[in-house]
Amino acid sequence: MAPLSIALVDDYEVVVQGLAAMIRSYRERVQVVELDANADVARDVDIALYDSFANPQGDSSQVRDLVANPRIGRTIVYTWNFDSERISRAFDNGADGYISKGLSATRLVDALESVHRGDQKVHQLGDGSVRIVAGDWPGREEGLTHREAEVLALITQGLSNAEIAERSALSINSIKTHIRSCYRRIGVTTRTQAVLWGVSHGFVPDRSRQTLDHA
């Protein structure tokens, strides 16, 4: 059986590059043929994997655009957020699958194949499963966690705390906690300083498309 062709979609090139590296060892089963940072999918692919890092969730217009793209076979949301309402809204939006970012690379590839076959749409961590933090994100080398980086990315984009809560599916109190922790890690005390730090450290969304050719 030919490997599934995949387009990885997020507004940050470091995120899609990190995700591509995560599944690179499974080329006989899935081949990443396009990396799209804030750009439309331009090649025919079996799956568009929509990473929710600093992006609207599965009920967004971005996902609807992917679903409507005739070049894409199936659209899958890749996220930390698993409340039942958001899952339902993503499927109402036309998404074909909903996969946890906490899965290992092996389980992620299994899930991609399962959704493509139409076997199981939702793949998440079971009770007692180890939560994997894989891939890459801006600020990781500076010690920011995935969630802190996501919050800082949204601050850099100019979103308010309420808008960040809606975008990330976190509570306002959680947002404030992540902001305080993030500020300590990067050595700032104000939102303006945080934005300036973010702009100079790769937290402005990219716009690029990279097509990958495989032998």
Rank of each mutant, 00 (worst) to 15 (best):
P205Y: 02
L170S: 07
A162R: 07
L108G: 06
V130R: 10
L196G: 14
E28H: 04
E141K: 11
S114M: 14
G135L: 08
D36P: 05
E150V: 12
A194I: 13
G58F: 10
N161H: 15
V199Y: 14
Q57L: 14
H146L: 13
A37N: 01
L154G: 07
L196V: 06
R29P: 00
T79W: 06
Y98S: 05
L19P: 04
R107F: 08
I6W: 03
N93E: 00
E113A: 08
E34A: 08
A42L: 14
D46P: 07
E13I: 11
L66H: 04
V16P: 10
S25I: 07
P70S: 09
V130Y: 11
D36T: 11
S60C: 09
R209Y: 13
T189I: 04
D65E: 14
A111M: 15
I175T: 05
L212Y: 04
L8N: 00
D136W: 09
V151R: 02
F91R: 09
H146F: 07
L112P: 06
S52M: 02
N93G: 08
A162C: 02
Q120D: 05
I155C: 12
L19W: 07
P138N: 03
V122W: 03
T192F: 07
A95Q: 03
R43H: 10
A37C: 07
A90N: 00
F53C: 04
G139K: 11
G97L: 05
G139S: 11
D40I: 15
S5M: 13
V109N: 05
L8G: 03
R185M: 02
Q31S: 03
G58K: 00
H123A: 14
A37I: 00
E148Q: 14
I23V: 05
R89N: 13
S129W: 12
